[in-house]
Simulated assay, not measured.
Amino acid sequence: MKGDEERLAALQSKIGLTVEGIEVGALNNGLIAIMKSASWLVRRLIKTEGDAFKIRVVDDFGNARLESNAPGNILLRLLKEHIPNGSRFNSLYKFEPYLDMAISRLIEFKLYPPPPLLQVSTASEVRKLMVHLNECVEQIRQEVKSKSFLATLNSYQRSSNKNYKELTEYVDALFERHARLLVLRIDLSYSKENSRTTQAQAKQDRQRLFENARSNKLFDDMVGYIWKLEHGPEKGFHYHMMFFFDGSKVREDITLAKRIGEYWTEVITKGRGLYYNCNAVKLTYASCGIGMIEHADAELRAGLCKAVFYLTKTDLYMKLQTKGRGMGKGLYPSPKGARGRPRAVIVV
């Protein structure tokens, strides 16, 4: 347990976990780490026993101070986490069940956003605060045992696991049909002046992109795609896209991704949009899962699985409340004929 705490502290120190600079709702490692840390603290808290806080008299005038036991230390750490707060964020996102339940209790006890806690005061005031905090911790412990919470937890976990499973099966099906795939990762967003583009407009732009792809030569050799809708305070609504092209017919992934990005900005959004070409910087990734990938290349296939997981891992800790689907993929490819030499089995 101590080793986990040290690793978590090192991670927080390394990435500087503050709300400032966090692209809320985007696939941002800092934000995901905050959610993971807070969720981990809640899970530790519910396993504790005994009072979270106690009081200690400090002088002969009846003054006392609040002292924390092990559960109290965890609660104080949770209150210090820079969990995003605000009506717009909370209306757009729902936290994973452990964190959502804990935040609800903290709000109920007027502890979120965290207020300044008494350092030294009269014994009666400190005792009142102690009882208040201990009751909050006990309610969090009891809530996770309820049937309603367990049902919510099971549903949430099934949904997150299902998304990743469906997408990896889809990618495997594309490789069963094609000997090699040219994989593009492009973020499609809007300019700062258009960051308040509505979810409905973003959906309309996405639908137009894929409808136009049917008759646009730029997409002639596209065999599949994956999209994920996200939201950030600076970008507003935006998409994380993966495009799959038949690697036997096209090459030059950086150029192709650039052309698709320009098509988004110039044609689909008529100048309102922006794009980011991930393929242009793919060599900087520790585990590259984009570019040209052969069916038998286990290393790049594994990197591609990580890239797919990256698209879904925000949902492990919080989910965007979308009107309709927040993630989608293309149609499964038709099965390949039995003729030809069978491929080697690749385990990723």
Results as ranks from 00 to 15, higher is better:
R105Y: 14
R7N: 14
I103E: 01
P115M: 09
R65A: 08
H82R: 11
E20K: 04
E67W: 06
L79H: 00
L17K: 15
E23R: 03
A64M: 02
A123D: 01
V126C: 04
L111P: 00
K128D: 07
I107G: 06
G30W: 02
P115W: 07
K94D: 12
N28P: 05
P97Y: 03
E67Y: 06
N63G: 10
T122F: 13
E108L: 15
A102V: 07
V58Y: 00
S121E: 15
I15W: 10
I103R: 03
S39N: 12
I55L: 12
S91F: 08
P114E: 01
K128M: 06
L118T: 10
L118S: 09
I32T: 05
R7D: 13
L79I: 00
Y112L: 00
P113C: 02
S87A: 07
Q119L: 12
N29Y: 14
V120Y: 03
E125T: 09
T122A: 09
T48K: 09
V120D: 04
I103Q: 03
P114I: 07
K14Q: 11
G3A: 10
N28A: 03
W40T: 10
A64R: 06
G16T: 00
K54S: 10
I32G: 04
A64P: 04
R65L: 10
S13H: 01
K36G: 07
P115S: 08
D59W: 02
Q12T: 11
L117W: 06
D51Q: 13
E20H: 01
I107D: 13
K14W: 11
L111Y: 03
V57M: 10
S13T: 07
D4K: 11
S37L: 04
R7E: 14
S37V: 11
D60T: 00
E67S: 07
R88Y: 08
L45D: 04
E96H: 05
N85A: 10
S37F: 11
E67M: 11
G30K: 15
K54H: 09
L106F: 06
I103T: 01
I46Q: 07
G86E: 03
M101P: 04
I107C: 14
N28V: 08
G62Y: 01
F53R: 06
R88C: 00
P97V: 09
I15Y: 12
L117V: 06
F109W: 09
K94W: 08
S13I: 05
K80A: 13
R56A: 13
R105H: 14
A64T: 02
G62H: 03
N69A: 05
E108Y: 15
A102L: 00
G86A: 12
K47G: 08
I55V: 14
G30E: 07
F89D: 00
L76T: 03
N73V: 03
T122K: 09
